[in-house]
C-alpha cells in the first residue's frame, strides 16, 4: 500500500519517528505521558553518567550499584499510577 506520497506524508513520518524513538510526542499527549517520558529519560541519564550516580550515592550514603538499581526500578512507574481514562 505504501506509495511515494505516503512516505512523505507528515503523519507517516511522525509514526515512523514514534516507532523508532521512544518518547516522541503526539498531538493527544497528556500531562502524565509527557511526564513519564521526561522521568524515564532522566533516570537513564542518571544511570549513564557515573558522576551523577555518584552524586546521588553520596547524598543517600548508598553504594553506587544500589543507587543505579533503584533508578532502574523507578523507571517502571516513575510518576505513580496512570490517571483514569476519561470516558468518551
Amino acid at each position: 500500500m505504501a506509495s511515494l506520497s505516503d512516505r512523505f506524508n507528515i503523519n507517516a513520518q511522525l509514526e515512523h519517528l514514534q516507532a523508532k524513538y521512544v518518547g516522541t510526542g503526539h498531538p493527544d499527549i497528556n500531562r502524565f505521558e509527557w511526564n513519564l517520558n521526561i522521568k524515564r529519560d532522566t533516570y537513564a541519564s542518571l544511570i549513564g553518567h557515573q558522576a551523577l550516580a555518584a552524586y546521588h550515592a553520596i547524598a543517600e550514603n548508598e553504594s553506587i550499584g544500589r543507587v543505579k538499581y533503584n533508578f532502574l526500578q523507578n523507571m517502571l512507574l516513575p510518576c505513580g499510577l496512570p490517571p483514569e481514562k476519561e470516558e468518551e
Binding site: 524513538y21 521512544v22 518518547g23 537513564a44 541519564s45 544511570i47 549513564g48 553518567h49
Partner: peptide, 9 residues
C-alpha cells in the same frame, strides 16, 4: 549522548 534507548550502557 547517554540516552534511554541508545545502546552503550
Amino acid at each position: 549522548g547517554c540516552r534511554r534507548i541508545v545502546p552503550g550502557e
